[in-house]
């Protein structure tokens, strides 16, 4: 595989099938990974906090502004 600097720019929607060795090698380490229910619960709470920006409502104040 070419180093990143020599690859054409791409993103997750445009990229052709690629693999990265260091990612593929994760499988063995992940197989033995055990996260406790407490760890997961704590992380879920943190995740819910992290996405607050996507949980706003719509206010009538905004709706009342006229655009021209």
């Amino acid at each position: 595989m070419k180093p990143p600097s020599e690859q054409p720019p791409s993103n997750l929607w445009s990229r052709p099938t690629t693999t990265r060795e260091e990612v593929e090698q994760l499988k063995a380490a992940l197989t033995d990974l055990k996260l406790t229910p407490e760890q997961l619960e704590e992380r879920r709470k943190a995740a819910a906090e992290r996405v607050q920006a996507f949980k706003t409502g719509v206010s009538s104040a905004t709706l009342a502004s006229r655009t021209d």
Partner: peptide, 24 residues
């Protein structure tokens, strides 16, 4: 869209946590 973003990011956070736990 906000709902999908929130759902997706919450799952991504957990996956990142698991990867961090093995030092990735």
């Amino acid at each position: 869209p906000d709902k999908i973003h929130a759902e997706a990011l919450e799952r991504a956070e957990l996956l990142s946590f698991a990867l961090q736990s093995i030092g990735f």
